[in-house]
Amino acid sequence: GSPLAQQIKNIHSFIHQAKAAGRMDEVRTLQENLHQLMHEYFQQ
């Protein structure tokens, strides 16, 4: 897949890990990143 698709997959797993660790501030930051990446992805 594209590097962007790979990045989106990575962030999904980072979010999963951050949630499991209870780091909600990190989850929020990652979700904002994910949102931006998704936006770029669909602009392609």
Rank of each mutant, 00 (worst) to 15 (best):
V27Y: 06
G1A: 11
E26Q: 09
S13W: 10
S13G: 12
E40Q: 10
Q44R: 06
A20G: 04
Q43N: 11
L30T: 00
E32F: 05
R23W: 04
E40D: 09
F42A: 08
A5K: 07
R28C: 12
Q31Y: 13
P3D: 15
Q43V: 08
A18F: 03
V27C: 05
E32D: 10
N10C: 15
L34F: 03
R23P: 01
Q17I: 13
F14N: 14
Y41P: 01
A21L: 10
F14Y: 11
Q31S: 09
M38R: 03
A18P: 00
T29W: 10
R23N: 11
L4C: 08
I8W: 01
Q31G: 04
D25K: 07
F14W: 11
E26W: 08
Q44S: 12
H12I: 15
H39T: 09
Y41V: 05
Q6K: 07
H35G: 04
N33E: 15
A20S: 08
M38K: 03
E32G: 05
Q31K: 10
H35C: 12
K9N: 06
L30K: 01
G22F: 02
F14I: 14
E32Q: 09
Q7D: 04
A20L: 08
L37Q: 01
F14H: 15
V27W: 04
N33I: 15
R28K: 11
N33V: 15
Q31R: 12
F14R: 15
I8E: 00
A5F: 14
R23V: 02
S2P: 12
L34G: 00
M24Q: 07
E40K: 08
F42I: 09
P3T: 15
M24I: 09
Q7P: 01
L4Y: 02
A18Y: 02
A20R: 10
L37F: 03
Q31N: 05
R23D: 08
S2N: 13
A20M: 08
A21K: 07
A5T: 09
M38L: 14
V27P: 00
F42S: 06
Q6W: 02
L34M: 05
F42Q: 09
E26A: 05
L37E: 00
H12W: 13
H16S: 14
H39E: 12
H16T: 14
H16F: 05
H16K: 15
D25A: 08
